[in-house]
């Protein structure tokens, strides 16, 4: 982290609202986050937290009906308000994305290798046929597909779900992007397949200079992979910090509650122990609580304060912030 260079990705005060039949849905409110070069940043939240809307905003994939304020800067240049063609140039070249649904993202009538070659050629026309083929095999190998020479000649339906997801990651990193956005890349997959995908992401982190923004609902996935973690709840960022403080010196009551509600595969429990339960339900995006969005479910909420005042992120440690009004008191 150098002070002179702007961060790779800098999101500041991003707010996104949608007009719907039921009124305005404030999907994202004043969210800031940054991704430095070579970092893996995890963006974690439950449904309705706005994490996927943030990624759509970075990629310029929001519908026209969205009202967006704030700023999204990539290598110092503002992305919001850019034209579709400028963004398309950026996507696939500098910023790549891997979505959850691997089956619908691949063309069923084209061979996997050809699709991968196409993804490379769109942005780099200089390669010869032979070089292109070598690159395809190299990429398939990088994402852990065995016998890449033969497999490049197969069709998507001949691949399993986990293999298709890895092909998509290969397509994402084909042009050595500066930033790879992985939006719930393992959500629909079994644990052993998830482990394969996570290993691929680890390999990208270790072997390439590509930064990764990993969007997930699973804190466990981030523990092993992320350098920083950003926690979102109901459209707001509640906590943001380096991975160890987030897990070991958790500051925000929501993050604490989330960690305490997780059953652990690595711990014995006696029969009487109960998991912590965050009371209540996730709020509706059309009628979010006043003040702190988490106060109706928070064990530390204080009347006439948390239900009125909107908490701003306050520093709780080195590079670690939490948006809680009572952060000093609940320590």
């Amino acid at each position: 982290m150098t002070a002179q260079n702007p961060p790779l990705l800098m999101v500041e005060d991003l707010s996104i609202a949608f007009g719907t039949e039921e009124g305005t849905a404030r999907a994202v409110e004043q969210v800031s986050l940054r991704v430095e070069s070579g970092q893996v940043v995890g963006l974690v939240g439950e449904s309705g937290s706005g994490k996927s809307v943030v990624s759509a905003a970075i990629l310029g994939l929001l519908p026209n009906t969205a009202r967006v304020t704030g700023s999204v800067r990539f290598q110092g240049t503002e992305l919001l308000g850019r034209t579709e063609s400028q963004l398309r140039e950026l996507r696939g070249n500098e910023i790549a994305v891997v979505f959850q649904d691997a089956l619908s993202a691949l063309n069923p009538v084209l061979k996997v290798g050809d699709q991968l070659a196409e993804a490379i050629r769109v942005h780099d026309r200089s390669l010869t046929k032979k070089q292109l083929h070598e690159r395809v095999v190299e990429l398939l190998d990088l994402v852990g597909i065995s016998a890449p020479e033969q497999r490049a000649g197969l069709y998507p339906h001949e691949f399993s779900g986990g293999m298709r997801q890895r092909v998509l990651i290969a397509m994402g990193i084909a042009n050595e992007p500066r930033l790879l956005i992985a939006d719930e890349p393992t959500t629909a997959l079994d644990v052993t397949v998830q482990a394969q995908i996570l290993e691929v992401l680890e390999r990208i982190r270790d072997r390439t200079s590509t930064s990764i923004l990993l969007i997930t609902h699973d804190l466990g996935v981030l523990a092993g992979l992320a350098d920083r973690v950003v926690v979102m709840y109901a459209g707001s960022k509640v906590e943001d910090g380096p991975v160890e403080p987030i897990f070991y010196r958790t500051a925000h009551p929501y993050t604490r509650g989330l960690l305490a509600s997780l059953p652990r595969v690595d711990r014995r429990t006696d029969r009487t122990s109960r998991l912590y339960r965050i009371p209540g339900q996730l709020p509706n995006p059309h009628s979010r609580p006043e003040g702190c969005v988490f106060h109706p479910r928070c064990p530390h909420a204080q009347a006439a304060r948390c239900d009125r005042e909107r908490p701003q992120p306050s520093v709780v440690g080195d590079g670690h912030v939490a948006a809680c009004l009572r952060i000093e008191e609940i320590g």
Partner: peptide, 13 residues
């Protein structure tokens, strides 16, 4: 536990 304070998530109904 606060089971009843969890209004159904459909407004205006």
């Amino acid at each position: 536990m606060n089971p009843t304070g969890t209004a159904a998530p459909v407004p205006g109904n």
